[in-house]
Design a protein around this nucleic acid. Structure first.
Length: 582
DNA sequence: GCCGTTTTCGGCCCGACTGTTTTCAGTCG
């Protein structure tokens, strides 16, 4: 067997180019070359399939921002696992300096001066020098800069991980927005940034307020009790850190140009750059204040729709604004009609107290009806999942009787269906016999254990489940738990192919700790032709509202309702469940 | 380093805030 280098994954590849950009910037290379590396890194990070596949197919140049030189570097990394250019660069600039850049208020220019003038090559050295008062000896640095830097280092350490789950940030933002809306003179207050784009994690909370007297709003905001530290404040914006450690940015703009301001504050930065380039091509200059026209006048936009219209574009949903082809799609009139909360008619994955759910069948049914759903599939666990009180075939039969009785009481308010979340056992077999499975209205198959099997084994196991004639949906495909459990090492291309062939749907599990499929997987699955289900995996009534996080993933993955089985009428779902199996 | 119905060469988004500044560079989003 020949020894082969494991092809680099997208994330490592992107990180490599990001570090290259940082080192070049410290070295004083021209900014546009640096931005080219960053743009390529961003594109690679956002790819829906492994760059290794594109490399194998000779299609690296189809990646936006990847030209001849970077394609050559990717090729070298894929073939040898190393990059000569990078190794040489690291001998010229200490690579530990990139940590220094992660600290706020330190950019490439200062990092280079710390290194060249004081011999500082790492973050601990920088901190020690600041404490010893050695930085103020440098031109342009004073005591205040030194103190501010120490604060930044402390904040960076306290945060450790620089991003938090959107599910943690959303309620905090909602509470701040509610209070901002009640301030005098405030016409509107909206979330912006990655929060509005529904990224899985956010680095800070960006908020935008419309008011004619920005200063007064900023003053009032800075008095909010949950603010621990003010990092900056001006006439139109303020930057603070809350007591819970979350950074918050507030922008305040007059209602007259709220549209351009909201567009700007929503980002992403890459999307904004593209949009501003487009404005330039059209002979205008776009900023948060409006469009500067050739004749010197400024065209203000009160609504975001007007910003895009000024450029001849339809409004682009925030979830798409990542510079992943959305602007070209808008120019070509082929933006996807994204799935919305209103499209969702039913929940296909929910538990009751028959297994590990918190409430009775009736309470779940009432909650689903109350949430406006047309149908609910109860999918309690199967017998092998002992920790979750999985059902035996005998209890399955009893549960069906109870569901039938409950359906009679519910009448036309809700269609209640009997499903299962059946275990995919370690060998790929299912935890119920065919006869038991055949009686369910809908079968979701999931993996909860033996997630660490080798790639070939776990892939084969998953494909066996997909090919099982009674399986309709694969639940939380990779099994990852954000921050606590790694995803199974699946060959996703093979899994997506099998699911598409069988007409089996893949779940986007909306629970904020899962979000599985993630957005890249969901986009690739859609490209391959897979059906999806946006489910909450509700274990109690309140969980039904978690669907918005799954919708965020789906929308960021360019998913339209046609691909989402639980946007279909119940009869269509049942026809599909009976008919797709191969 | 990338890219192209104004270009294969000459461009590459725009403005606010900070600190140390007599006019601006650096950083950030």
């Amino acid at each position: 067997m020949s020894r082969r280098v494991q092809p680099m994954d997208n994330r490592s590849l992107a990180e490599t180019f990001e570090v290259i950009a940082d080192l070049l910037e410290i070295q004083g290379e021209i900014i546009h070359k640096i931005l080219a590396y960053r743009r390529a890194a961003e594109s690679i990070r956002g790819l829906s399939r492994p760059a290794a596949d594109l490399w194998g197919a000779g299609e690296l140049r189809t990646i936006s921002g990847v030209g001849e030189a970077i394609a050559g570097k990717i090729d070298e990394l894929m073939r040898t696992g190393k990059l000569d250019f990078f190794e040489k660069l690291k001998r010229q600039v200490p690579v530990t300096l990139v940590d220094v850049l992660r600290v706020g208020d330190v950019g490439p220019k200062k990092a280079a001066r710390f290194w060249k003038e004081l011999g500082i090559t790492s973050l601990p050295q920088l901190e020690a020098a600041a404490r010893a008062g050695k930085l103020r000896s440098m031109a342009g640095m004073g005591e205040r800069s030194e103190a501010r830097l120490l604060e930044s280092i402390a904040a960076w350490k306290a945060r450790q991980s620089t991003r938090v789950s959107i599910a943690r940030a959303r309620p905090v933002a909602a509470s701040l927005l509610d209070r901002l809306r009640h301030l005098p003179g405030v016409a509107a207050a909206e979330p912006a940034g990655s929060l509005r784009r529904w990224r899985e994690t956010v680095g800070d909370i960006d908020l935008l307020v419309a008011a004619d007297k920005p200063r007064a709003v900023i003053e009032a905001f800075l008095a909010f009790s949950e603010i621990e530290r003010v990092r900056g404040r001006g006439d139109t914006k303020a930057s603070v850190v809350l007591a819970n450690g979350l950074p918050v940015q507030l922008w305040v703009h007059p209602p007259a140009h709220f549209g351009t301001a909201l567009q700007y504050a929503t980002g992403s930065q890459a999307h904004n750059v593209r949009l501003r380039e487009l404005a330039q091509e059209r002979g205008m200059s776009l900023s948060e204040h409006g469009f500067k026209l050739k004749d010197g006048r400024t065209a203000e936009c009160g609504r975001e729709e007007d910003v895009y219209a000024q450029l001849g574009l339809p409004w682009i949903a925030p979830e798409l604004r990542e510079d992943r082809g959305e602007i070209q799609a808008a120019l070509d009139g082929r933006l996807p009609g994204l799935v919305t909360a209103d499209d969702i008619r039913g929940e296909l994955h929910a538990h009751s107290d028959w297994s590990d759910g918190a409430v009775s069948l009736e309470q779940m049914a009432e909650a689903a009806a109350g949430a406006g759903l047309e149908y609910l599939v109860i999918t309690d666990h199967s017998k092998s999942l002992g920790v979750a009180n999985g059902l035996t075939p005998e209890r399955v039969r009893k549960q069906r009787k109870e569901i039938e009785a409950l359906q009679r009481r519910l009448g036309s308010r809700l269609r209640l269906l009997h499903g299962t979340e059946v275990e995919v056992l370690a060998d790929g077999a299912l935890d119920f016999d065919d006869e038991v499975l055949a009686a369910f209205d809908l079968v979701t198959a999931s993996v909860h254990s033996s997630l660490r099997q080798s790639r070939p084994r776990v892939t084969e196991r998953m494909i066996a489940a997909i090919r099982h004639p009674h399986v309709d949906i694969i639940g939380h495909l990779t099994g990852r738990m954000i921050g606590s459990r790694d995803p199974a090492d699946l060959d996703l291309e093979a899994v997506f192919q099998a699911a598409a062939e069988q007409g089996v749907a893949l779940e986007i599990n909306a629970h904020p700790e899962r979000l599985d499929l993630n957005e890249a997987h969901a986009r690739r699955a859609t490209e391959v032709g897979c059906l999806l289900a946006i489910n909450t995996d509700a274990h109690r009534p309140e969980h039904l509202s978690l669907r918005e996080y799954g919708l965020g993933i789906a929308r960021r993955a360019w998913v339209t309702p046609a691909n989402v089985v639980n946007s279909w009428p119940v009869e269509q779902v049942l026809r599909w469940a009976r008919g797709h199996a191969g």
